[in-house]
């Protein structure tokens, strides 16, 4: 298995945000985490990526306990994330951003002499990723001047560029138009063939389209887990999540 969360607890002050979370994700599996606002999804993500540390419990990645590793070290192990709010290098072009992310993969980031953009193999790699995420026509555009939808795609691209084994996607379609959403679903579906993915998403259509397994989170507890169909038919989930 790729990721195993056992017995996770997390409180902020007196407020308990996560309670007894157990999640197992297998290789090349796409797992979705859903739940109403404030259910603790974002905190759970932060615990997995290492931004927030859990109070109790274990995070294991490829059978290795990574409780003590910070964000950087987890990223180097292959846990890569895309953020809910675009987190880009706004002054860099698309190509540069992707190459920068790739530079870590090739261990060239400490190079002092050879210009980044002249590293051909990194550049080839970056162009390939740009094609994957549909930005091949925008290589030399500064990130700041991309449309919101394209920025969202680049956000995903940077996460892919560091050669992840596990992709954490935090609401990849947030704020997108229906057409843009469609594009990104196609893109993620393509990715799910190569990567293990954990995705948080509001849009149920997106989830039903993508996920192999769905976990439902409510007020910090997992209340349901199962296939998309099982979730669709579950009364409990509908009551909590859809408010029916």
């Amino acid at each position: 298995m790729a990721l195993k969360l056992t017995n996770l607890y997390k409180s902020f002050g007196s407020i308990r945000v996560l309670e007894d979370i157990n999640i197992i994700s297998n290789k090349k599996e796409c797992i979705a985490i859903i739940g109403p606002n404030g259910a603790g999804k974002s905190t759970l993500f932060k615990v997995i990526s290492g931004i927030v540390k859990q109070d109790i419990g274990n995070v294991e990645f490829n059978n290795k306990n990574i409780n003590e590793l910070n964000v950087e070290k987890r990223a180097r192990l292959g846990i890569s994330q895309s953020f809910q709010k675009n987190s880009l290098f706004l002054e860099m072009t698309v190509k540069e951003s992707l190459m920068l992310a790739c530079s870590h993969k090739y261990k060239t980031s400490f190079n002092l002499i050879k210009p980044l953009i002249k590293n051909n193999f990194i550049s080839d790699d970056a162009i390939m990723i740009a094609k994957d995420i549909g930005l091949e026509n925008y290589l030399d555009v500064q990130s700041e001047f991309l449309s919101y939808g394209l920025q969202r795609q680049l956000e995903l691209g940077i996460a892919i560029a560091c050669n992840p084994k596990l992709l954490l996607l935090d609401e990849p379609t947030a704020g997108m138009s229906p057409a843009e959403t469609k594009d990104i679903i196609t893109l993620i579906r393509k990715l799910s063939k190569d990567y293990s993915i954990i995705i948080v998403e509001h849009d149920m259509e997106v989830i039903y389209n993508l996920a192999d397994k769905i976990y439902v989170l409510d007020r910090g507890k997992l209340i349901f887990e199962g296939s998309p169909n099982a979730v669709k038919n579950s009364k409990l989930v509908q009551k909590v999540y859809l408010g029916i």
Partner: peptide, 14 residues
Amino acid sequence: DAPLGRNLDAIRQN
């Protein structure tokens, strides 16, 4: 211009 410099620049930006 090298990877280290661009990484530093990236740290400043984000």
